[in-house]
Design a protein around this nucleic acid. Structure first.
Lengths: 234, 234
DNA sequence: GTTACTTTTAACGAATTATTAACCAAAGTG
DNA sequence: CACTTTGGTTAATAATTCGTTAAAAGTAAC
């Protein structure tokens, strides 16, 4: 899958409608994960990192609003679109209260959904450009340029970083001296939290440690069962 | 009037439909100028500066396509949306040929129009950031004239560039020392991002590297999976 | 038509990257 | 301590991306 493909979590209990909609969005170049109910939706949300959630409101066991609230607890920025059969005003209000970005009444014009998705993702994109503009980090006597993916030591040695090395070091640098939970690194970078991705991450930690050896003050510490800490010693 | 309000030229011969649509767009915070026919539309276009034109296709004396062509001569970038009652394929083709950005069949959902307006203006916004009219560049000991398509080294050797070589080098020069994402070069120059255009681009990178060998300080570096960087070493 | 030029496609090798296995060390647990 | 889980590290493998040259296909001028 391409790097820049936007990832959408679609939670819809009607299997026919769900798969059709998933296919439609896939054709239009989105990476769609389909969940058949609120439970499954939440599990899938926790294990990965999405740019947008499309939630059916009427679902058995756990309705869309409840799911939206749970999602909001984990991520207070991810855009949410609700799908609903009826156009009840109180529902719309309830939706906006849990932070809906938009609302669509079924049956809806698929083109409208597509345009709304575009608009929402674009909007978030513009916003995030402003705050995630930070791509230069000081790490002891190192400098990380995470846009051009290299690490310089004292201005002379230049170490090229692979995408994963780069993202991981950037994440550690963002939380410098603080704990970077394994779980978060995995969902953000690997988009899946399982045994293998976890071991893969350990391999990358080893690689980063090798690079960072040039400055003995800089260390990546492990916190058993929790995650890692990038620390700068005095 | 607000600073950031987008200006729309609306050309529509049906006075009822025209005023209703104008009001609708005005409510949604656009600054709308309404023209009742192609003649008037062209006059109003010349006299002001618009972010978007919405043209009815079927108009007496001067139809939307003819008007679009005249507008294109004056401004080759302004987005154009056509409104049409019939969905004739040849019309759509004709429209895209004169550079239509989108197409809407009457009667249409006003929300769709609004979303399309948003999307188009946003897109142009993003594109225009990088797209200056600059055509002369210093690249180490080279000079690129991208209007006349040649590259000179120290003023003596003159290398003629093919259109693609020229556009690619210009794009790299616009982002000098910075990343030029592959994806962007492909959509801007090749207008399509697929395996073959991507390989074609690699061929052109090789050609440019051969030209640029005359100055060892000038390099085109690859950032694996991301794109290229034109760098000038000290 | 021919010619000169431009662009795409093929082909093959090289480099880069991510994953997985393997084996051992360290930390936590009863 | 015996045992389980978690982490550290290296190396092998697989997959993708890139560099380069050359041939083929396409275009435009003559």
């Amino acid at each position: 899958m391409e790097e820049n493909t936007k990832r959408i979590l679609l939670v819809e209990d009607d299997p026919n409608f769900g798969t059709v909609l998933k296919e439609y969005l896939t054709i239009h170049n989105y990476d769609v994960v389909l969940a058949k109910n609120g439970m499954e939706g939440y599990e899938k949300f926790k294990k990965s990192d999405f740019h947008l959630c499309i939630l059916d409101v009427m679902m058995p066991y756990k309705d869309g609003f409840t799911l939206a609230q749970e999602i909001r607890e984990k991520d207070k920025d991810v855009p949410i679109i609700f799908l609903t059969a009826k156009a009840l005003k109180e529902d719309v209000l309830k939706g906006y209260k849990v932070g809906a970005d938009d609302y669509l009444n079924k049956p809806f014009d698929s083109e409208v959904l597509l345009l709304k998705i575009q608009a929402i993702i674009q909007r978030k994109n513009v916003e995030s450009v402003a705050d995630s503009k930070q791509f230069e980090f000081e790490i002891g006597s190192f400098k990380l340029n995470s846009k051009l993916r290299f690490l310089t030591h004292n201005g002379d040695t230049q170490i090229k970083l692979s995408p994963k090395e780069n993202e991981l070091l950037r994440l550690l640098a963002l939380h410098i001296n603080d704990l970077m939970p394994r779980e978060i690194a995995l969902t953000k970078i690997w988009r899946d939290d399982n045994y293998f991705t976890s071991r893969s991450m350990d391999v990358y930690i080893a690689k980063l440690r090798k690079y960072l050896k040039l400055d003995p003050k800089v260390e990546i510490l492990n916190i058993h069962g929790e995650g890692f800490r990038l620390v700068i010693n005095p």
